[in-house]
Nucleic acid binder design. Structure first.
Lengths: 210, 210
DNA sequence: GTCTATATGGCGATAGAC
DNA sequence: GTCTATCGCCATATAGAC
């Protein structure tokens, strides 16, 4: 504590906070732009314009385009707890969580578009998000497989279906519903379709919670 | 017959045949390029290079980029009879046909990539292929719905599922399997997963044909 | 930390010769 | 029917002033 009487010395945190806010604004804008045009076609120019700064200013915070994409994906994974909350191995909780995710996605078409375009683009081995999506699907399958294993132990999984098969089908269903929903939002109800899908594969009742 | 001894006069058909062959070569190359990079990122330059001609030469055959894309999609729809063969309204035939389609697709990842990226891109209303995909999914749903209506009449559809729901789920499953298959071809067997999916929803036996 | 200015290159498309 | 040459635009990225 010195003579200036200000409890905070030189407001260093203010500086950092502003930087953090700027970076957050950039990531928001980047998510919007990549969601609308995909990664390859979305431009840094557009991102910079939306956030109200120059391209050079933007590139001070993220050295290049792939780095910006990586930051967008990382933040999304940290923000949404969809997968971590399901790691418990409780089949009912996980499946209900997936339906909840579908419901939540129905109110943010921008994010859905981002993932549809990006996951298709990232199919190419040289795409900067390729490894991200490879890992993401492996993780997703193993989490959902555990859920179905739990239900199988309770004899609630349809005979002739392995937990891995059910997991693959579940992720496929969720992905496929997204494209169809984006094209015809009036016809497709992602959460309802997913619930119906689950009731065909396992003995589960969604009447209670979601 | 004249002094030149050539039975064909002036080879006029040769000219036309060459044009047709050139156009076909362009469409093949365009399919490859769009499949690898999508429509927005795939360039006419790359297409022209693969087919061994200049951009201007290419643009003589197709006036602009959207026209080239439309030609690629049109040809694919004419070549593959997947939908028309299913229009009969016979549920078993249609569902078997879909499994066949999945099997066939497993041997042409290029085409699968084209449709994954393109259908995601074309979600945007201003994409040149938007209307194409809107119509394609409407048509697909109505064809597959008819198939499930046929099975419903025979009491072979799972109770609580409408034919439309089943159709939406079927298209979603096929789409979703494609992305996952492109990322992990060793883990995902599209045709097998689709068969399992059908047996969960309807009373059908795939032991006989495909 | 943000700017202007600029380098460098790919893009779709056109004009006009052959 | 195909070419060369060229236009105008937008992209990513860098250099250096403030």
């Amino acid at each position: 504590m010195d003579a200036t009487a200000k409890p905070r010395k030189r407001e260093p945190r203010g500086e950092y906070a502003k930087t953090r806010a700027t970076r957050a604004a950039i990531l928001d804008a980047a998510l919007d732009v990549f969601a609308e045009s995909g990664y390859r076609s979305g431009s840094l120019r557009e991102v910079a314009q939306r956030v109200g700064m120059s391209e050079a200013g933007l590139l001070h915070h993220f050295p290049n385009k792939p780095a910006l994409l990586a930051a967008v994906l990382d933040r999304r994974d940290h923000h949404s707890l969809e997968w971590t909350r399901m790691t418990e191995g409780n089949g009912d909780v996980t499946l209900r969580g997936l339906v909840e995710t579908a419901t939540r996605n129905s109110s943010s078409p921008g994010v859905v578009e981002l993932y549809c375009i990006l996951s298709a683009e990232a199919t190419a081995a040289d795409h900067p998000a390729h490894e991200y999506f490879v890992r993401r699907y492996e993780l997703g399958r193993s989490n959902v497989r555990r859920a179905f294993e739990d239900l199988e132990r309770q004899n609630r999984l349809m005979p002739g279906i392995t937990p891995l098969n059910a997991a693959i089908a579940t992720l496929a269903m969720m992905d496929g519903l997204q494209v169809q929903w984006l094209l015809h939002r009036d016809v497709v109800d992602m959460a309802a379709e997913l619930r119906r899908f689950f009731t065909a594969f396992v003995n589960i009742d969604f009447a209670s919670s979601p």
